[in-house]
């Protein structure tokens, strides 16, 4: 774990709609893989991701173990103006939480 990983988020206006791209830093262990010593790595994966735009909840994503490592999501929001606040919160199965936010460009 040499690198300090960070969640990344970009939000841009495209043809009047807001396009959001999101990259979360998370190992997403399925609970089925083994480490070098042959011991099972316990499951650790993001379960719930929520997106707010200016205090209004716009999207919920539920993830299973089959979501790729360092999950990437891209989606569009209707309308929007520059400087809107886009806020993402996630929770994993161990109870760890994350918050990341950005302003629409």
């Amino acid at each position: 774990m040499g690198l300090v990983s960070k969640d990344r988020i970009r939000a841009k206006l495209k043809k009047g709609n807001t396009s959001v791209r999101l990259l979360l830093a998370h190992p997403m262990h399925t609970g089925r893989a083994k480490n070098k010593e042959g011991v099972l790595i316990p499951a650790e994966f993001i379960q719930d991701i929520r997106c707010w735009r200016n205090e209004e909840e716009v999207l919920t994503i539920k993830c299973g173990t089959a979501t790729a490592r360092n999950p990437y999501f891209s989606f569009q929001l209707v309308g929007g103006e520059s400087n809107d606040l886009i806020e993402i919160r996630w929770v994993d199965n161990m109870g760890a939480k994350g918050l990341t936010e950005t302003r629409v460009k």
Partner: peptide
Amino acid sequence: AAILPFKSMIK
């Protein structure tokens, strides 16, 4: 308020 297209990565 949310519309497609939607993109992501899976295993």
